[in-house]
């Protein structure tokens, strides 16, 4: 029982870290992997999703519907920004970094001015359960399940739908896709919206467990970028295995030496990966296969 309890504890922690990494990174990974745009406003889409979710729940909606509202809102804001700003910068990758960074500053400060420095959250739903020596939050299991569901859904969207085929064609050879009648502008717009919506979903899912402040998105950013860098451009071959590997490393180090060691180990993992696999895990996997 002792061993079982310790084993479950470790799996739970690794799963928890995995869920956080996948959810923090998937929106960023799609926008980067599909479009080559490094979206520094990613954290603010997460914040947007979280705030809308909390407002919706306060207005009387149940939490799952509130999260849906947050996802939708972040997605719509993403599409709007794509039309107004990002669209005009596709051939200027460095400029998109500056532009999205500017958007993130405006969003953080705007929310601070409009909604104040802090807001009361909605409280974590469900309760706790005990296994062996430890008690756990049930809601964290929901988060783990959500991470897996998001990965599966993304796989289905990109491999089984018409939009997915068009999107992959657009990424591979944009001009060829255009010549064959694919509306690449629309595809880019929808992809950016999808990435933003995923960020919003993450915000909504984590909103009940966190402090509601305008700068809350920043706490996801480090993990998100680490996961995307380690994973490389492909969401399925990159983000998922990267999150799994990093989740195990982080859980093990944090359990052994505390949070600081957990953070350091993740950053060291990135340095090693950049040195050994410059294109991330997905780049390596694709090369091995090809």
């Amino acid at each position: 029982m002792e061993i079982l309890s310790a084993l479950f504890a470790f799996l739970y922690q690794a799963g928890d870290a995995f869920a956080f990494l996948v959810l923090a990174a998937c929106g960023l990974a799609i926008i980067f992997g599909m479009m080559g745009v490094i979206n520094l406003a990613h954290g603010e889409f997460i914040m947007c999703g979280a705030y809308v979710t909390v407002f919706a729940v306060r207005a009387g909606l149940p939490l799952p519907l509130g999260i849906a509202c947050g996802t939708l809102a972040a997605g719509l804001v993403g599409i709007l920004l794509e039309l107004l700003v990002v669209r005009h910068l596709y051939n200027r990758p460095l400029d998109t970094i500056v532009a999205t960074w500017g958007i993130s500053l405006i969003a953080t400060q705007g929310v601070l001015i409009l909604l104040g420095s802090t807001m009361r959250g909605v409280g974590t739903p469900l309760s706790s359960f005990t296994f062996g020596d430890y008690s756990y939050s049930q809601y964290r299991l929901v988060l783990m399940a959500a991470a897996v569901v998001v990965l599966v859904l993304l796989y289905l969207i990109f491999n089984k739908t018409r939009f997915g085929v068009h999107a992959r064609a657009t990424i591979q050879v944009p001009h060829m896709a255009e010549a064959l009648g694919v509306n690449t502008r629309l595809i880019y717009c929808l992809t950016f919206g999808l990435g933003s919506a995923l960020a919003g979903l993450t915000g909504g899912l984590y909103a009940p467990t966190m402090t509601m402040v305008p700068s809350m998105g920043a706490t996801f950013i480090m993990e998100a970028f680490v996961t995307v860098v380690v994973g490389g451009a492909d969401v399925f071959l990159g983000t998922a295995p990267a999150a799994a590997v990093l989740g195990v490393i982080k859980a093990a180090m944090t359990s052994w030496q505390g949070q600081l060691a957990g953070q350091i180990s993740m950053l060291i993992a990135v340095i090693i990966v950049i040195r050994v696999l410059p294109n991330g895990i997905s780049g390596w996997l694709l090369r091995e296969r090809g």
């Binding site: 739970y12 922690q13 928890d16 870290a17 956080f20 939050s137 964290r140 966190m210 402090t211 809350m216 920043a218 706490t219 480090m222 859980a251 944090t254 359990s255 505390g258 949070q259 957990g262 953070q263």
Partner: peptide
């Protein structure tokens, strides 16, 4: 800036 405390 750390916001996740499961392991702690």
């Amino acid at each position: 800036g750390v916001s996740q405390f499961s392991q702690t």
